[in-house]
Design a binder for these strands. Structure first.
Lengths: 194, 194
DNA sequence: GTTGGTTTTGAACGTGCGTTCAGTTAAATC
DNA sequence: GATTTAACTGAACGCACGTTCAAAACCAAC
């Protein structure tokens, strides 16, 4: 027998996804052609179809994998007090998103390029992530640790604030990532306490 | 003599811009064709070129006009105390952006589709807007009204937080716009004071 | 070195793109 | 009603798109 039936190159596959991730983030899904992705990988456009059924599936897989990983590694420890959990969440969110700027960009910017069924699935994953923060805020409001008039609004406000870091933070800049984490944590903490 | 030389229809022109604004916001610049815009207006694609030299200029004009209007109407009253100015800024930002969801969406999402020279111009306008908030925060930090470790970071954090409202707020929802303004103002105020 | 399946090429398919422009229509002036 | 010119049509230009597929190249096992 030759190579295992159904197996594909374990080299080209990841390279296709990496190239697509980078190009989609830089230029946007609609502006990137399959031929561009192929050129980046060093193959002809036709070869890409060994690794994805079509362009849309490539985008969807990138977004889904990102969201699933996010949900897998987000710190959730119901035993800790709300303030501790909130600090962990804030530092985690900034750190995780900073390490994956392209995936973050795509996950927030390319939602409108998803076909309806795919959009629903990604939105559900996003909802689960937001629910983690909302749960922390609700628990803290219940115990009196936090002073939030509306947990849903506070959730959206905090996530937007934290995610914004990826749009301006640069490693070479004036501040280290942990400086930024410290200052965002200080702001978030004050904004949700009395 | 017939109609004034150089004049174009004052009806079709705005309709072209309105259609482009809506379509670019919904589907993204790269995904929208000139023929789609023309169909929305009710003309043939060729007619659009009476109103824009090309597709890129259409995008750029929309973004520039939005940013210029933003800068024109943002409340700036150096005589007021920083806390008053900050509250005015927060309420203004939420209200202004809520009234123009499509323009906001484009101004934040289509930057990468601008040609370099156009990008630089839009970024400069955005920088001027951010400088308004940064000035308020610096003044407040100087007088002791605020407690911000880094005015630049606080600026980015607050703007990201406020702009995020457009991604989830719906008129028909549970909360009125002024409820949202109140709660965001409460959070911002706490986050920048001691 | 032959075999057999995996992977890639390279050309082709139909379609739609941004843009141009000669020609037509329509409205304001006289 | 004739004239003038703005506004628009409709067809065309060359090009790039996503996707398909027969043929070729490649590689591990025998």
């Amino acid at each position: 027998m030759a190579r295992t039936t159904g197996s594909h190159s374990d080299i080209t596959g990841p390279r296709v996804r990496d190239a697509a991730l980078r190009l989609f983030a830089q230029q946007g899904y609609a502006a990137v052609s399959m031929r561009q992705i192929a050129a980046e990988v060093g193959v002809q456009a036709g070869a890409l179809y060994n690794y994805t059924p079509d362009k849309q599936s490539l985008l969807f897989a990138l977004m889904r994998d990102h969201m699933v990983e996010l949900l897998t590694v987000v710190p959730v420890d119901p035993a800790d007090p709300p303030l501790t959990r909130l600090e962990a969440f804030v530092r985690f969110h900034i750190g995780f998103h900073h390490a994956r700027p392209d995936a973050v960009f795509i996950a927030y910017m390319e939602l409108r390029n998803l076909e309806p069924a795919n959009f629903i699935e990604i939105e559900a994953l996003r909802g689960r992530y937001e629910a983690v923060l909302e749960g922390i805020l609700r628990d803290g409001a219940a115990t009196g640790a936090f002073d939030v008039a509306d947990a849903k609004i506070a959730t959206m406000a905090v996530i937007a604030m934290l995610t914004g870091v990826t749009t301006w933070f640069r490693e070479e800049g004036r501040l280290s990532l942990s400086d930024v984490q410290d200052q965002y944590w200080a702001m978030v903490r004050k904004s949700v306490t009395a």
